[in-house]
Write a protein that binds this DNA or RNA. Structure first.
Length: 654
DNA sequence: ATAGGGTTAG
């Protein structure tokens, strides 16, 4: 019985119908007309019903077909009903209601109908229901099919339950041959890696008798998510046939691991190879551009997106990614244009825009947009609050921030996380309330992370408070033993307070740990989307001579306007001449000089820096914007600085 | 049936 229905169900009769019909109508006088057998007619009917179900997109359509099934008297046909259950699952009908009822009305469900139900629960949960059903199925003596195991493994993945997954893995081996099934193997890899057992996933991969591009891609993604792009690239290299999804996994992997240049490199190779691009690829590429801050490149990517048919008006994800990209490329206006054009907005779109305003010091715009958002159906999330609180912090709106923080859980259902505490510490700290900030940390119900203590340490630098700085730093040294920035910040705080013994103590500590200062690096976009990169003291650029000369000329002019090099920005114990030399070689100054040389008057100069901009460079940028009449936008690792006519948007407070 | 997706923080 089981075997018979099995044979019935594995056929895809829809492809056979035209052929049968053709044979019937072809005139052949030698062959008498043979009517369809009852079985043939029934198969024809079933395949028609299945294809009807295939086109159903909502529950009313499905109900209509169901009525048809009942009227035609095939309401016990498991093949058709399995399709019905799968379709119901697809449109999101709750498993316990309609799909369950369909299943329970059948006297002898076949493996496919069982599996359709198991699969439904593995998508919607409760995931234990999938396992219960599997056990019932075995108890009734029904043999599972490979699809059954895929569905069960998917439930394990969704429930992040590797123990159950291992049991099912064992079953696929004992029950007979299922472990060598390609689909089962692929789902198994996915289960192991999503549960965090990459090595197990790799072993399954190694043991599979047959693999396809999906097996490889699952592993590539797993390595990428683990931060191991080199292994991912090694696998990708060995992948015989690379499809769009595999390429996209590489592009996205590099983007997510802060290696935007390689992400773009892969994207370009992908295009050269004639591989199609879809919205998922573009999201990765846009995110890479955002990290690079490369405006011309960004505009090109936007063109590519719109030519491929994806723009802010028809795709929320692309739109939100573009908002982020334009904000990070220094143009909050362009970001807002995108936001404005979007026909559909979700929490990502709003949060990205709010964060964008905050980054650019447009706190009022951020808060206003937040209030606008509250009038819509879109609910704020953790990120939204990080954005608004950051905005308050940058303009010193202490009271507003306090109020938001106090009410966010009650009014909006977002419980403050350590990140939000970090924002509050930043807000209070910048406003000079260092003790209150420290007290707030002490009241936290969760463990404060590096961000919280880091915000306090940063505030101590602004307000020159070495005592509290020491408390914050000690926590940071424990939490982030290799975070070089913390040591430098603390030593700078001691240095400005003239506590030289403590300065050398911190330096000793750094030396003992073998920590070296990250090299400062800035980049600026030249002509033709080429990105020019400068390290501190870097003389490797082909135009180094001109750059050095241009910088000297600029500084000479600035000195006439009262500029004096801020020697305290050099935390080394060297003479003043040497300090001046070091200051003149800061990467952001090199980038500025190159930008002035290589762009025409009236062009905004956009510079991106990997570290926080130093005070001396900040004042040079201010001065340069005045005497050259240029707009200068610097993105450092924290925020944006818009220099215009001698002033900066950060209000010299960063 | 099975693979790829956007935002935050010192």
């Amino acid at each position: 019985m089981v075997a018979a229905s099995h044979r019935l169900c594995t056929q895809r009769p829809s492809l056979l119908i035209p052929k049968h019909r053709f044979q019937q109508v072809s005139p052949n006088p030698d062959q008498p007309f043979v009517p369809f057998s009852q079985l043939q007619q029934r198969k024809l009917l079933e395949s028609r019903l299945v294809s009807l179900l295939h086109d159903c997109n909502d529950i009313t359509q499905i109900k209509r077909v169901h009525g048809h099934i009942v009227r035609k008297g095939v309401d016990q046909c498991c093949f058709v009903l399995a399709k019905l259950v799968r379709t119901l699952t697809k449109v999101g009908a709750p498993m316990d209601s309609y799909p369950r009822l369909v299943f329970e009305q059948v006297k002898q469900p076949n493996p496919f109908l069982w599996t359709a139900l198991i699969r439904g629960y593995s998508l919607q949960g409760p995931f234990t229901e999938s396992v219960i059903l599997y056990n019932c199925m075995r108890r009734d003596g029904i043999s599972p099919v490979s699809f059954t195991f895929s569905a069960l493994l998917k439930a394990c993945t969704a429930a992040v339950d590797v123990d159950l997954g291992r049991q099912i893995h064992a079953q696929t081996i004992t029950i007979g041959g299922f472990a060598s099934d390609l689909y089962v193997g692929n789902t198994m890899i996915d289960m192991y890696v999503k549960c965090g057992f990459l090595d197990c996933g790799h072993r399954v991969f190694d043991e599979m008798p047959e693999r396809d591009v999906i097996s490889w891609t699952s592993l590539i993604v797993a390595y990428a998510k683990n931060g191991d792009m080199d292994s991912a690239a090694g696998l990708f290299e060995g992948l015989p046939v690379k499809d769009m999804v595999a390429w996209t996994a590489m592009v996205t992997g590099f983007a997510q691991n802060a290696r935007p240049r390689e992400a773009l490199e892969f994207f370009e190779n992908m295009q050269d190879g004639g591989i199609q691009t879809d919205e998922v690829t573009l999201v990765g590429v846009i995110s890479a551009c955002a990290q690079l801050g490369a405006t011309k490149y960004a505009n090109w990517v936007r063109d590519v997106a719109e030519k491929s048919g994806f723009g802010p008006t028809n795709n929320v994800m692309i739109g939100s990614a573009l908002i982020d990209m334009y904000s990070k490329c220094g143009s909050v206006e362009d970001a807002y244009k995108v936001f404005d054009r979007m026909t559909e907005r979700n929490v990502f779109s709003y949060s990205s825009m709010i964060v964008g305003f905050a980054m650019h010091g447009r706190a009022n715009a951020a808060i206003q947009l937040f209030e606008e958002m509250l009038k819509t159906d879109v609910k704020p999330n953790r990120v939204t609050f990080v954005g608004v609180l950051t905005a308050c912090s940058h303009v010193g709106m202490v009271e507003h921030g306090r109020h938001l923080f106090a009410t966010m859980e009650k009014s909006y259902g977002v419980a403050p996380s350590a990140d939000h505490y970090a924002c509050m510490v930043d807000l209070l700290g910048r406003a000079g309330c260092l003790e209150e900030a420290l007290e707030l940390i002490r009241t936290m119900s969760m463990d404060p992370h590096g961000g919280v203590w880091g915000a306090l340490l940063g505030a101590c630098r602004i307000h020159a408070n070495p005592d509290i700085a020491e408390i914050a730093a000690n926590h940071l040294f424990e939490l982030e033993p290799n975070g070089i920035g913390n040591y430098i910040l603390l030593s700078n705080i001691y240095a400005s307070a003239g506590m030289w013994d403590d300065v050398s103590r911190v330096r000793m500590l750094m030396r003992k740990k073998g920590l070296k200062k990250n090299p400062g690096c800035s980049w600026v976009e030249g002509k033709k989307r080429v990105i020019h990169e400068f390290f501190a003291g870097d003389m490797t650029h082909p135009k180094s001579k001109e750059i050095k000369q241009a910088l000297e000329d600029l500084v000479t002019r600035l000195e006439l306007h009262g500029y004096q090099p801020n020697l305290s920005c050099v935390p080394y114990d060297v003479n003043d001449e040497e300090k001046k030399r070091i200051l003149m070689a800061h990467s952001e100054k090199l980038a500025l000089a190159f930008g002035l040389l290589s762009s025409s008057a009236g062009c905004t100069i956009r510079i991106v820096k990997n570290l926080r901009i130093c005070e001396d460079c900040h004042s040079v940028m201010c001065g340069a914007s005045r005497i050259t009449g240029r707009e200068i936008v610097v993105r450092d690792n924290m925020r944006f600085h818009h220099f215009h006519d001698g002033m900066c948007s950060c209000g010299n407070f960063w």
